[in-house]
Design a protein around this nucleic acid. Structure first.
Lengths: 182, 182
DNA sequence: ACATCTCCATACGTTTACGTATAGTTGAGT
DNA sequence: ACTCAACTATACGTAAACGTATGGAGATGT
């Protein structure tokens, strides 16, 4: 019996592999095996591997931009929103999300289209978060710089393994939150 | 005429490729081509590809640990040293260094030995930098947390493309430096 | 019942990369 | 000049992965 898969299921599985092994880990036959089919179906949905990657990139771009808009809509409680965002992105339940984020950025280092997507997303995120910081009585430039530091922390933190720390990660993150949002 | 290469030259070239294309970009025949020889010589110096990678990892580990010790030796001018470190790592002339750093971290996500090396290096770095912060009248825990934030910034900043910023990168980095070291 | 659309299986050709085997070349010491 | 160690060239076998071609199975509408 044949299992029919949608284009979307291929993309979803590809994101799973992206998180686990990076772009270079995305192999068509590998995906097919995970989905319990052969690669015949893949070439029905996509022209080739490149085609899949471009669709992933586009989905990532719009998804991330949509998400940040939703997450920063409430400008009346800027400080709380910022703290919430930090908790969200530094949480250990977000490992998969962080992995995808890093994998896409790694991809961007050797692919101009990925770099473009990352740039667009970062631009949007910096804008959204800086306008939150602007609610905390900061000058526009300071707010923007603080947003930059905010995101550097978010990304950088995901590169630092908790096991490298001599202090409880929880304590460290509380400190960083207080330090960044105040 | 034959060009004789040392083991070290192969490793050096491999680091160049690592910076440009990540671990998966390191191909033996590719290296040989860049070095203007064939792969015959590679297998004289290394048992196999894995062997090369392990040697690279080891060189990276000891090199990075040595470097951070040198860079943080002067504890009498902690604030200046910290500012200097930020300038060093956020400088646009350090793109290659950042690329290697990120590539190794990416590698660590799917290789336990790489993860081990990264962990050891991070541990050392956090210790060194936190003892600098401790000179600035911070409690041990606060100093350690600040060191964590410091490195998160360093790493995170290397993930954010300058082109994504609406403000001059120079200004932003000045702000971050003041904010982190004070 | 039949046609059609959607998706999958299979077989094939090609490229790329790994690793091995073996012969050859070069330079330094004697 | 001879030898040996250090290194390289070349040729080969194998595996993984891409992409193509073609046939077929299942569901759906008429």
């Amino acid at each position: 019996m044949n299992i029919k898969l949608s284009r979307h299921q291929w993309i979803t599985e590809a994101f799973a592999v992206l998180a686990e092994a990076g772009v270079d880990g995305i192999k068509i036959e590998g995906l097919a095996k995970r989905l319990r089919v052969t690669k015949g179906g893949f070439y029905w949905h996509f022209r080739n591997r490149e085609d899949l990657l471009l669709h992933m990139l586009e989905q990532w771009r719009v998804g991330r931009i949509e998400t940040i808009h939703e997450q920063t809509r409430d400008e009346d409680h800027a400080a709380d929103t910022l703290k919430y965002l930090i908790r969200l992105y530094t949480d250990s339940t977000n490992l998969r999300g962080n992995a995808i984020e890093l994998a896409v950025r790694d991809w961007a280092r050797s692919d101009s289209r990925a770099a473009e997507a990352v740039e667009a997303v970062d631009r949007e995120r910096l804008d959204c978060v800086s306008s939150l910081f602007a609610q905390l009585d900061l000058s526009p430039d300071d707010a923007y710089s603080r947003a930059y530091l905010f995101y550097s922390f978010i990304f950088g933190q995901s590169l630092l393994n908790d096991d490298s720390c001599r202090l409880e990660p929880k304590k460290i993150k509380q400190f960083c939150t207080r330090f960044l949002v105040s």
